[in-house]
Computed example of a mutant assay.
Amino acid sequence: MRLIQPLAFAAPFLILLGSCVGPAPRQAGPAPTPAPRPTPTPAPAQSASPAAPLASEWQDRPAAPGDWRWQSDAAMSVARFGPTAADTKLTIRCDRAVRRISIIRTGAGQGAMTLRTSYGATSWPATAAASVPQTVAIRAAADTALDQIAYSRGKFAVEAAGLEPLIVPAWPEIARVIEDCRG
């Protein structure tokens, strides 16, 4: 009995001692041979770098370059978007007397005007202006789709058949025109 007690005390230490063994030695194998390096071939000279392909979804495309400009008078409130004040691509205009908002896209489109926001897409009837190449959709100031444009996450798109999609930032000038028309 006396012999069993010291062994019972030493058993956990013997188990720990067995776990202190290092990894098994590796057998040396043949040294790997390096793969042959390809010979670089000079790229053909190009006059201009190719443009990056357009993203398939409108949300992934960049907004058109430009700024919103707002102005107001007694008859109307207007927000214009374009690279310069003279080169307007999109106009959102409120006619206060009849409480109507016109979305005016530069260029003669056909059929409906589709507005895409982070809330979804809305299609409105549109007409081509006779005097200048413009596509116009007119809505009542109370139309809730106007709020979707004003509060879209970062940007929205304006599309009409026959025209390239126009993606513009959703800046406060848009909400200002809508509120001026409702107020």
Rank of each mutant, 00 (worst) to 15 (best):
M1R: 15
I4M: 14
Q5R: 15
P6F: 08
L7S: 08
P12I: 11
P12H: 12
P12D: 11
F13W: 06
L14C: 09
L16V: 11
G22W: 07
P23Y: 04
R26L: 15
R26D: 14
Q27S: 09
Q27K: 10
A28D: 12
G29H: 12
P30M: 11
A31S: 10
A31V: 10
A31H: 12
A31N: 08
T33E: 10
P34L: 14
P34H: 13
P34W: 11
A35L: 15
A35W: 10
P36D: 15
P36V: 15
R37P: 11
R37E: 09
R37N: 13
P38H: 08
P40G: 04
S49I: 14
A52E: 12
A55I: 03
A55Y: 00
S56Y: 03
W58N: 03
Q59K: 04
D60M: 02
R61Y: 09
R61T: 04
P62M: 05
P62Y: 03
A63T: 11
W68P: 03
W70F: 14
Q71H: 13
D73L: 10
A74T: 07
S77P: 07
V78D: 05
V78R: 12
A79V: 11
F81E: 01
G82Q: 05
G82K: 04
G82A: 04
P83G: 08
T84L: 10
T84V: 04
T84N: 03
D87S: 09
R93H: 02
R93A: 07
C94S: 02
C94A: 07
D95W: 06
R96A: 11
A97N: 11
A97M: 07
R99I: 04
R99G: 09
R100T: 10
S102T: 02
I103T: 06
I103L: 14
I104D: 01
A108T: 02
G109H: 00
Q110M: 12
Q110D: 12
G111D: 03
M113W: 02
T114S: 05
L115D: 00
L115E: 00
L115K: 05
T117C: 06
S118M: 04
A121T: 03
T122A: 15
P125S: 01
A126W: 04
A129H: 01
A129R: 10
A129V: 02
A130P: 15
S131M: 15
V132Q: 07
Q134E: 13
T135P: 01
T135A: 02
R139Q: 08
A140Y: 06
A140S: 15
A141D: 08
A142Y: 07
A142R: 10
D143I: 02
D143E: 02
T144C: 05
L146Y: 04
D147W: 08
Q148V: 01
Y151P: 08
Y151H: 15
Y151K: 12
Y151S: 13
S152C: 03
G154D: 01
K155A: 09
A157L: 05
A157N: 08
A157S: 09
V158A: 07
A160I: 00
A160Y: 05
A161F: 08
A161G: 14
G162I: 10
G162Q: 06
G162A: 05
E164L: 06
L166K: 09
L166D: 00
P169L: 11
W171V: 15
E173N: 01
R176A: 11
V177E: 00
V177T: 00
I178H: 03
I178F: 06
C181Y: 00
R182N: 07
G183H: 09
G183I: 07
